[in-house]
């Protein structure tokens, strides 16, 4: 067993873990934070995406021991006392989620994307989230949600989220 020390959503945590324990299970089972999901066993779907020191990473392919000394952000850490994170607001406004299973991972991936590129084009967004699968939305509205969040974070004019279903 290994003793590890890390931060999750700003809170110091310690854990005694088997070397083989996956980070996603540390988060879900040991810490009972179930917003981080598991959708595959091959690092393909991105449902388990979290931020490690600000970088998006798939928690199903990282060992818990690798989190030692790291600062992890999960979906539970996005909202603050002031309210929802712009990406959360964007997902709701633009109807960018249906079943909600891929949503936490998709949002965390988008947070890093916007951190690096505050005003991405549609193509940059599509490539930027291509490591995260969504089976429900067809991605159109996820693109809009990320544009919305980017605009909000830059203080720019918000794009329309009205359905173009005319």
């Amino acid at each position: 067993m290994h003793e590890i020390k890390f931060k999750v959503n700003g809170v110091e945590q310690t854990a005694s873990v088997e070397p083989r324990l996956l980070l996603v299970h540390l988060i879900r089972e040991n810490l009972s934070m179930t917003g981080t999901h598991i959708g595959c066993d091959t690092t393909s779907c991105g449902a388990c995406t979290v931020l490690i020191d600000g970088k998006s990473a798939k928690a199903c392919t990282i060992l818990a021991v690798q989190a030692n000394g790291k600062d992890i952000t999960t979906v539970e850490g996005l909202a603050t006392a002031e309210g929802l994170h712009p990406i959360q607001e964007g997902f709701k406004e633009a109807h960018a989620l249906q079943c909600g299973f891929c949503t936490p991972g998709m949002m965390l991936r988008a947070v890093e994307l916007l951190e690096k590129n505050p005003n991405p084009t549609e193509e940059e967004i599509r490539w930027g989230i291509s490591g995260n699968l969504c089976r429900c939305t067809g991605y159109n509205n996820i693109v809009t949600a990320i544009q919305y969040a980017g605009a909000k974070m830059r203080g720019a004019e918000l794009p329309s989220t009205e359905p173009e279903f005319v």
């Binding site: 179930t34 999901h37 979906v75 997902f91 709701k92 989620l97 909600g100 949503t103």
Partner: peptide, 23 residues
């Protein structure tokens, strides 16, 4: 009316309750 979804509040905050979340 294109009202926003009521169920979204829990999903965007990681508070959905899927079967693997049952303990």
């Amino acid at each position: 009316h294109s009202v926003k979804r009521k169920e979204d509040a829990r999903f965007i905050q990681g508070k959905g309750n899927y079967v693997d979340d049952v303990k």
